[in-house]
Design a binder for these strands. Structure first.
Lengths: 151, 151
DNA sequence: GGCGGTTTTGATACCAAGTATCACTTTAGG
DNA sequence: CCTAAAGTGATACTTGGTATCAAAACCGCC
């Protein structure tokens, strides 16, 4: 687990939210599959937590910048724990696992966009699709709907 | 109107599809708002055409490469006529109008991604959000749900 | 530990975007 | 003009997510 649960708690509490038992359960589940999960996957994996609460918690964590929302190649939404700072996502087209990249030579993307457009971009979205190393060799089509990867 | 309707017809017929009366109606509507429209907007503007047909036609045109599907900043989907060749989209955060860019200095994006990732990307998605020149001065918030821009 | 105000929760209903089904209509071509 | 194939429309369904609202949990205070 790459993300400190305590820091998530701090994020919540520093912004006037409570770290409730229910949120703890949701956040644990999220942290356990931090490299790409679906809201519905979290919901179905947590029979004690209501659907609305799962979606509300995810929305809250998005607003706090704890999570990123990304799109698989087919457009279906996934979430992942956010790296700090500006970054983008590489998404496996087979298993949906998400990794970040930021320290690559795309650092000057934003200014180049600005000069290409003649106006300041207020935001952008860049997602790269590839086959992850684990999926590269495997012949099976294992794209999941639930949001878990690789068992 | 920037897109030849005849070429759309050719695209369809060269791929074993018919250019029916109904498709003609849908394609006319699309061509008339080619810089960003929603499926539902097309549907509600065409009382003679069924919902399923509108979505099916859009899907077909996507498959043929006649249309692109893009996401507004809030994630809601929009379509636009596709420029030929590899390109990306600039989307106004207020009115949702979509323009293309390709001949900018991002041409080397793909190879740079490849070397940054250590593996070949099989695709990517880049969308840039900005305020279009028409929206820049206007104080009104006019973000539409229907998909039309600027009257 | 109990009280009370605020926040959170869960059930439910709803919305948006899109797909599946299937009987019916168009269409192309002989 | 007839027929098979393609396309259409109504409807129901699915996925992803939000609104509502009463009930429950939470937190500070006494």
């Amino acid at each position: 687990m790459l993300v400190s649960l305590d820091s998530v708690r701090e994020q919540l509490e520093n912004n006037g939210h409570r770290y409730t038992q229910t949120r703890g359960v949701v956040i644990d589940a999220i942290a356990a599959s931090s490299h790409g999960f679906s809201a519905d996957g979290v919901y179905t994996s947590l029979p004690t937590v209501g659907r609305a609460t799962v979606y509300r918690t995810i929305k809250l964590l998005l607003q706090l910048g704890v999570l990123c929302k990304v799109a698989l190649q087919n457009g279906s939404p996934r979430y992942s724990m956010a790296a700090s700072g500006h970054h983008h996502h590489v998404i496996c087209i087979r298993c949906g696992s998400i990794s970040d990249f930021s320290q690559c030579n795309l650092d000057d993307l934003a200014p180049r966009l600005a000069s290409a457009l003649g106006r300041e971009p207020v935001g952008h979205r860049l997602e790269v699709y590839t086959l992850c190393s684990e999926c590269e060799g495997s012949p099976e089509v294992t794209l999941v709907r639930g949001g878990q990867q690789h068992a």
